Amino acid sequence: MGKSTLLRTLLLAAFITGISLLHYFTPLHLPYLHDIFQRLYYLPIILAALWFGLRGGLLCSIVVSVAYAPHILFQWGGQMTMEMEKYLEILLYNIVGGVTGLLSQWERERTVELQKTARGLEESYQKLRHQSERIIAIEEQLRRSEKLSTLGEMAAVLAHEIRNPLGSIRGTAEILKDDYKPENPKYEFIEIQIRETERLNRVVEDFLHMARPQPTDMQSCQVLDELEMISTLLLSGARERQITLELKSPPFPVTIQADGDKLRQAFLNIIINALQATPIGGRVLISTTVHASTTCEIQFHDTGPGMDAATMERMFEPFFTTKPGGTGLGLVITKKIIETHGGTLMVESEVGKGTTVIVKLPMQTAANGGMP
């Protein structure tokens, strides 16, 4: 019996006991008081019915009847008319207790059904909301795929119409460069021409990598080895800028099915972006964790200035960049590589607190040589 049930039971018992004592100790020549006390019995009966349903109402009415009957028999004995009226009152106690308890029980069952319906509607709402979010995400992916498909159709034309003239321009500039000494003003102009030609060629290369479907050579790949290799390559540059580049890894190999070259390209793009965003004396942390031996999560955290909400919304749009001289394609290509490997790429950022890029990749199963 719960604490609330016990308190209610004691309260009902106190009501019945108090009213019965009033009956027994009130003189019979004050019948109007007895009439009032007689009506007071309805209070505990109705409360019991409301609190405990049909059984509570009936049980309380029976207890009231038992408590009230001796008063009728021994104190009002001999007055047949008075006794009959009070016996009918006892009958009414039980009718009121039963009807009120039945109505209360029906209402309680209805409330339970309504609560179940409300929970079902809430669950349905959450499912619909989740499905609508997935539909919106799928529609966004379809729009992005359609855009990339259009870019892919343009890629073949651009490759021929831009790269060949760029090669001719660069070759001509290199020939002209030999005719001038470094102190000549025209030498600097030719250097600028060659540098800008290389930049345009890089833009075209990035564009082609993003727009065209890239064949993948999926093999067993050690994620930690790839990260260590890239960290080693970039460590000297980080030290020159007094940036701490730290790699935290689990004490066991993490094996996935991947194209090593493309995975390195994706990781390299992310780490370079992190280093470029980190100020002098800052820190870039790369940490790897494994979830349930099925998913490898790699976090790239920098202590840079972070990004605002407007930048976060547009960061995966082709050609959108906040870096001077950037093409705005690096992160798009990186995301495409990760998704090609069945993974996901998410970005969390807060202005003034840095940015964290989270990459999740499916792990290779133990049967295929992955983690046990």
Rank of each mutant, 00 (worst) to 15 (best):
L200C: 12
L200K: 07
V203L: 14
E205L: 11
E205T: 12
D206N: 15
F207G: 14
F207Q: 13
H209M: 11
M210R: 07
M210K: 04
M210L: 15
M210I: 12
M210D: 10
A211M: 02
R212K: 13
P213R: 13
Q214F: 06
P215Y: 09
T216D: 06
Q219K: 14
Q219F: 02
C221Q: 05
C221E: 04
Q222P: 11
L224A: 04
L224G: 00
L224T: 10
S231H: 10
L234F: 12
R239V: 15
I243Q: 06
T244R: 12
T244S: 14
L247D: 04
K248Y: 08
I256S: 03
I256A: 05
I256H: 06
Q257L: 10
Q257D: 06
Q257C: 06
Q257Y: 01
Q257K: 03
G260M: 08
D261L: 11
K262A: 09
R264W: 04
Q265M: 15
F267D: 04
F267G: 06
F267N: 00
A274T: 00
A274M: 07
I280E: 15
I280P: 02
G282M: 07
L285A: 00
S287K: 01
S287F: 03
T288W: 01
V290W: 08
A292Q: 15
S293W: 10
T294A: 11
T294R: 13
T295W: 07
C296S: 13
C296T: 08
E297G: 00
E297T: 12
E297S: 09
Q299S: 09
F300D: 04
F300P: 00
G304H: 09
G306T: 12
G306P: 11
M307E: 08
M312F: 03
E313F: 07
F316S: 07
F319S: 12
T322Y: 02
K323Y: 13
G325K: 14
T327E: 04
L329G: 07
G330V: 05
L331C: 09
V332A: 04
V332D: 07
K335F: 04
K336M: 02
